[in-house]
Computed example of a mutant assay.
Amino acid sequence: MKGLFITLEGPEGAGKSTQIELLNKYFSEQGYEVVQTREPGGTEIGSRIRNILLDSNLDNLEPKTELLLYAASRAQHVNEVIKPALKEGKVIICDRFSDATLAYQGYGRRLDKDLILKLNQMATGGLEPDLTFLLDIEPEEGLLRTKNEVRDRIEREDLSFHQQVRDGYLKLAEKKSRFEVIDGSQSIENIFDNLIETLEERLELNEDSE
């Protein structure tokens, strides 16, 4: 089979990490070879960049610097991990990808969206996910879920920022057919059931079209 590239997106506290672990198990049990990864990160270089981006002590990090660091991490990630795995027919499950940059830096930071699109194009070589799950949740509820954790630099932004990010995600989902919006306020079990139902419908459609 050809490789399959799935991304999970969503505001802080939406439960992406939990669902990614469950999806990994699901695909592995089906006999697929799975690559579980994340952004920023996914490579040694990307992980070092991630440490800078999420460091809560770096309050003076310029939004444009932040944007370029995300792009740099993505370029390394795509060429070192994602593209080779797709060529080998593996299933890639990624925690955030290029849509996150549009949501966080485009809508949240209000940076030039056309510039972000160009940077994403350069970093990915035009690669887009086959399917993107948006776990949607009200920012207040999502941040409440993280209240007992040590919050990173992005999580510490004010509520209005996180609301703008959520609004951005929903606007992206309206424009791109590869998006599936899932109610992230449901139980873990219900969210996973929704993911699998959608996934199986999508894969069946893809098989019928080949």
Score class of each variant (00 low, 15 high):
4 L>H: 13
5 F>P: 06
7 T>C: 10
7 T>N: 08
8 L>P: 12
8 L>T: 11
8 L>E: 10
9 E>D: 04
14 A>Q: 00
17 S>R: 08
18 T>R: 13
18 T>A: 06
19 Q>G: 03
20 I>Q: 08
21 E>D: 05
22 L>H: 04
22 L>C: 06
23 L>E: 05
24 N>L: 13
25 K>A: 12
28 S>R: 13
30 Q>C: 14
31 G>Y: 14
34 V>A: 14
34 V>L: 14
35 V>P: 07
35 V>D: 12
36 Q>E: 13
39 E>M: 01
41 G>M: 09
42 G>Q: 05
43 T>I: 15
44 E>R: 10
45 I>G: 03
46 G>L: 13
48 R>Y: 08
49 I>T: 04
50 R>C: 11
52 I>Q: 05
53 L>W: 05
58 L>C: 06
58 L>S: 01
62 E>R: 11
65 T>W: 09
66 E>P: 02
70 Y>V: 10
74 R>D: 08
75 A>M: 12
80 E>C: 12
83 K>S: 09
83 K>W: 05
85 A>W: 14
86 L>A: 13
87 K>H: 07
89 G>M: 15
91 V>F: 12
96 R>P: 00
96 R>H: 10
97 F>C: 05
105 Q>I: 05
105 Q>A: 01
108 G>Q: 02
112 D>M: 03
114 D>C: 05
114 D>W: 06
119 L>T: 00
119 L>K: 04
120 N>C: 02
122 M>V: 12
125 G>E: 03
127 L>W: 12
129 P>H: 03
130 D>G: 07
132 T>D: 06
132 T>W: 06
132 T>L: 11
134 L>W: 03
139 P>S: 14
142 G>L: 08
142 G>H: 06
143 L>T: 05
147 K>D: 04
147 K>H: 13
147 K>Q: 08
148 N>Q: 13
149 E>T: 06
150 V>G: 02
152 D>T: 07
154 I>C: 09
154 I>R: 11
155 E>R: 04
156 R>M: 13
167 D>C: 02
167 D>F: 03
168 G>D: 00
169 Y>H: 01
170 L>R: 10
172 L>I: 10
173 A>Y: 02
189 E>D: 06
192 F>C: 05
197 E>I: 10
199 L>V: 10
201 E>Y: 11
201 E>I: 11
203 L>E: 06
203 L>D: 08
203 L>P: 02
208 D>F: 09
209 S>T: 13
210 E>T: 15
